[in-house]
Amino acid sequence: MPGFGIAEAAGVGLDGRERPSEDVVVVLPEAVILLDGASTLREDLPSGGSYARELGAQLAGRLTAAPEIDLAQHVAAAIRSVARHNGFTPGESPSSTVSIVRWDDTTVEALVLCDSPVAVFLADAVEVVADDRLRSLPPGGYRGRLSRGEGFGAGHCEALQASGDRLDQFRNTEGGFWVAEAVPAAAHQAVRASWPLADVRAVLMASDGVSCGVDDYGIFSWEDMRSLAASAGPQAVLDAVREAEKSDPDGQRWPRVKPHDDQALVYLDFS
Rank of each mutant, 00 (worst) to 15 (best):
Q169H: 13
A198K: 11
G164K: 06
S207L: 00
G218K: 01
D168N: 09
L197K: 03
S194I: 07
W222C: 04
Y217A: 06
E181F: 00
S207H: 09
Y217H: 08
A187T: 06
A185Q: 14
S211D: 07
R171A: 11
V210R: 02
S207C: 06
A190E: 00
F220L: 12
W178T: 01
A206L: 13
I219D: 01
F220V: 10
A186G: 02
S194D: 15
F220I: 13
Q169C: 12
D215M: 06
L167K: 08
G218P: 04
A185T: 14
V200T: 01
R166K: 10
G164Q: 14
A185K: 11
E174N: 09
G209E: 10
D165E: 15
V210E: 07
G218L: 12
G213S: 03
S221R: 06
E223G: 14
R171T: 11
N172Q: 05
M205N: 01
D208Y: 00
Q189S: 13
A202V: 09
T173S: 14
C212L: 10
D168Y: 03
A182E: 05
A182K: 06
S221I: 08
H188N: 04
D224M: 02
P184T: 10
Q169E: 12
D165Y: 04
A190R: 00
F220S: 11
V183I: 13
A180Y: 08
V183A: 03
D165T: 13
R201H: 14
L197W: 03
L197H: 01
V210P: 02
A206F: 05
I219P: 03
A206W: 01
G213A: 07
S221C: 00
D208W: 03
G175Y: 11
D165V: 14
D165S: 12
A186H: 07
L204S: 02
D208K: 01
L197D: 02
F170A: 13
V214F: 05
A206R: 01
S194V: 08
G176R: 10
P196M: 07
F220K: 05
D215S: 10
L167F: 13
L204W: 04
W195V: 12
R171I: 15
A180Q: 03
G213K: 03
E174I: 12
A187I: 01
L204I: 09
W222L: 07
A190W: 05
D224P: 05
W195D: 07
F170P: 05
S211R: 03
V179S: 04
D224S: 06
D216G: 01
E181V: 01
A186L: 07
D208L: 04
E174A: 15
V183L: 09
L167A: 11
A185G: 11
